[in-house]
Nucleic acid binder design. Structure first.
Lengths: 339, 339
DNA sequence: AGCGTTTGCACAAACGTTTGGGCAATGTGT
DNA sequence: ACACATTGCCCAAACGTTTGTGCAAACGCT
């Protein structure tokens, strides 16, 4: 029914001008400065004018088929409904667009099988490169992708020695620890996130390390694993508060877990920022908007996305690429300031 | 440097088996049930075995070039860092994957020019169809896309008579109004969101209409426009509270605006859920987690995404498609329950 | 005028598929 | 023995580009 009109082709332009298709191609591709020997500048003008007129747009499938380049990069994220990843992706998209790349993003639910499936899906689509925001320790995925010779970079989380753009999460954890130590909080707990994510592991480690350096060893039962969402934070806090030893301060490795913990504390009769200090991570937009504004570590999410693209581009052009960890900064708010 | 090995092609398989490439193609494409006259079942077996062995994956560019079908749909959203859109997109991606479609999503920042640019970018990529989550009243964009004969559907917001999957936002507004009326709130205000978004307009209208039916006319200065984020909610609330007439209840057309409003109220010495009632919209995950849990209208975001894909598929197969509005439900929480 | 270089374009092959036709060999019915 | 249908496969064209090569005309120089 929809008699879909066919788009203009190079051939059509060539025919209408009595030229050969190759000439048209060269003119339209060469730099608009007439330097080349592709055609006389008069012919070039005519070609460009007509192309404009007909609204010519190259068929990307033909181009990619011929050139073996897609200008496409696949992006795998755990889930875009996680605002952190959404921001990272915005940075990716922005930088990619600036370089004439298209991105296509897929949710993997932080699930190994989906991850695997999406990755091969992307490979099947013949992407030029891949960006993984969902790295997890202990899968062979990246080694396998590396074997396929398609360039890729990790972002947000690192794993193994693969090229990655991350935040210096270890430092982030230290920053929180230093802040807590300055305020004199010695009895502290950590909501540590999942062990498969380097972000969680490094943040917790940074925090614990700094305390140890200060001569305070945080007992094992005050460091509890969790998921990244509010429910996870709530459960973890429950575990901690039930333990009998009620800490002065809690460091949650992300904002959502912190919010969950805060809710749990309230249920136990502890007001955040008054009876108990809480700090989160990522400085999500709501952190500042909460009734008791949340102390959090600001991470350069957007920037990480952009850097990941730059790194991938370097890889694509055959250069080597070195992993980078971008510095976080601590934003102190009321939730961690006990009187 | 990267001597990128070439992937297996049909030709390679054919050669290795002494067959013609067309035979291989037919076998690999035909339904795996051997019904056809493509090849003897013995040959078919050999072909499939070898294809498997070599890890053959069809080159999508060649396929699309030949078939004029990409199995690609472009998705335009204002921004994925808006959790509502992220959820809608997850629904889209899920349903698309089930039907063998790939999606690629682009942020438009709710900016007309970016929107236009991304749309033509998608069209240039020769997508089979488009899904717009960022419809805004008053641009010719959709009429122009319609003229290009590429099927498309709107989701979340509707505009003009174009096919759309939305939430019944008008009803959502009514639900809140009914709840407020039941509680006896007669002096109310609306944080109405931006006028270019049908979601905002319909929700506010539904609310105002229901009040009018109850014989209460909400004065114009108690209905104030805003953006969708916390800052916008805060500013709008400021305007309202400065007006001298402090309302008993505020309806904000989305959760973030509601949170901002709540913060502003606090600054004015009004505790949400005690001194002032507040309701939001979308029932974002945090709504339930806030220190004072937020009353909100739950919208089927995921489902809308899925439905949008289904509708697009109908369109793609040449059938007609009717717009649908999915029903919302009210979730009452403490923020709207004054004693 | 003659020679070499540059300019301006055309030719054709290739990228990896899909698909309408064709044609020989085999099978079926009389 | 015949006609005729079916099976099993091959041929070739087409999709819209890009790009190495070839070749005539125009130009510069002595």
């Amino acid at each position: 029914m929809a008699g879909r009109a066919r788009p203009t082709t190079l051939q059509a332009i060539a025919d209408q001008l009595g030229l050969h298709v190759s000439t048209v191609s060269r003119v339209l591709n060469g730099p608009s400065g007439e330097g080349g020997r592709a055609a006389s500048s008069r012919t070039a003008q005519r070609i460009r004018a007509l192309a404009d007129d007909l609204g010519y747009r190259p068929n990307p499938y033909a181009t990619s088929l011929r050139t073996r380049r897609s200008n496409l990069v696949g992006v795998l994220v755990p889930r875009l409904s996680d605002i952190v990843l959404a921001y990272v992706y915005e940075g990716i998209e922005e930088a990619a667009a600036e370089h004439g790349l298209s991105t296509f993003v897929m949710n993997t639910q932080d699930d190994e099988r989906t991850q695997e499936a999406r990755a091969t899906m992307a490979l099947d689509r013949r992407v030029d490169g891949l960006i993984f925001a969902d790295g997890r320790e202990g899968t062979g995925l990246f080694d396998r992708v590396a074997a396929r010779e398609t360039p890729f970079v990790l972002v947000n989380r690192h794993v193994g020695g693969h090229p990655a753009i991350t935040c210096d999460d270890h430092l982030g954890g230290r920053l929180v620890a230093e802040h807590f130590l300055e305020r004199g909080y010695e009895n502290v707990a950590v909501i540590a996130g999942p062990s498969y994510a380097s972000t969680a592991v490094d943040r917790a480690a940074g925090f614990v390390d700094r305390y140890r350096e200060a001569g305070i060893v945080i007992p094992d039962d005050m460091v509890v694993e969790s998921t990244f969402d509010t429910a996870g934070g709530r459960r973890a806090a429950e575990t901690i508060l039930r333990g009998g030893n009620v800490p002065t301060a809690i460091f949650a490795v992300n904002d959502f877990a912190a919010i969950g913990a805060s809710g749990c504390a309230r249920d136990h009769g502890l007001l955040t920022g008054t009876d108990i200090a809480i700090a989160g991570f990522n400085d999500t937009p709501l952190a500042a908007e909460l009734p008791v504004p949340l102390t959090s570590v600001r991470t350069p999410m957007h920037e990480m996305g952009r850097e990941a693209v730059e790194m991938l581009l370097r890889l694509l052009s055959g250069k080597a690429a070195e992993s980078r960890r971008l510095p976080p900064t601590l934003v102190v708010r009321k939730s961690s300031l006990l009187a």
